[in-house]
């Protein structure tokens, strides 16, 4: 058991964890933030993606005890306060979800992709950048559309591509 102070969704939290406590378990079981989902348990599906000091990580493979003191964590619940974030709006409006289980991880990842692309974003960039997030329902078409719509709303230019066929 060890104690560690983290900033979770902007709030300082002192938590006690075992050496083996996964970040996802801390978030879900101790913080009761259940929007972060467990899809595969093995770092492959992206349902558990959160932001950790500005980087997106799959929280099912992060050992909480190894985090530096004061690490900043943002889960889907911390993406917006009050009104929806434009990316959340976009996923809702563009039908970027069906069962919704993959959605929180995708939204967190998508915001990160856009924030890292201030000079513009194209559909094929989005497709590549999202390959670590699995969705079994949508076939991804509307997910890509949602991310591009979200990017526009976040003020990032979406570069059109010619059809490659």
């Amino acid at each position: 058991m060890s104690e560690i102070t983290l900033r979770i969704n902007g709030k300082q939290r002192r938590v006690t964890v075992e050496g083996r406590t996964l970040l996802v378990d801390l978030i879900r079981d101790q913080m009761n933030l259940t929007g972060t989902h467990v899809g595969c348990d093995t770092s492959q599906c992206g349902a558990c993606v959160v932001k950790l000091d500005g980087d997106t990580v799959k929280s099912c493979t992060v050992l909480t005890a190894t985090l530096p003191e004061g690490t900043e964590i943002t889960t889907i619940e911390g993406v917006s306060t009050g009104d929806l974030h434009p990316m959340q709006e976009a996923f809702s409006k563009c039908h970027g979800l069906q069962c919704g289980f993959c959605t929180p991880g995708l939204v967190v990842t998508a915001i990160d992709i856009v924030e890292r692309s201030p000079d513009g974003l194209s559909a094929s960039q989005v497709r590549k950048a999202l390959k670590g997030n699995l969705c079994r329902c949508t076939g991804y078409q509307n997910i890509v559309a949602s991310v591009l719509e979200g990017a526009r709303a976040m003020g990032v230019q979406v570069t059109e591509e010619k059809e490659t066929v």
């Binding site: 889907i76 959340q88 979800l97």
Partner: peptide
């Protein structure tokens, strides 16, 4: 949809 995008939609594990 509004609950899915905020993580508020409850599945059994939640």
């Amino acid at each position: 949809a509004p609950m899915h995008v905020t993580g508020a939609a409850r599945y059994i594990d939640d």
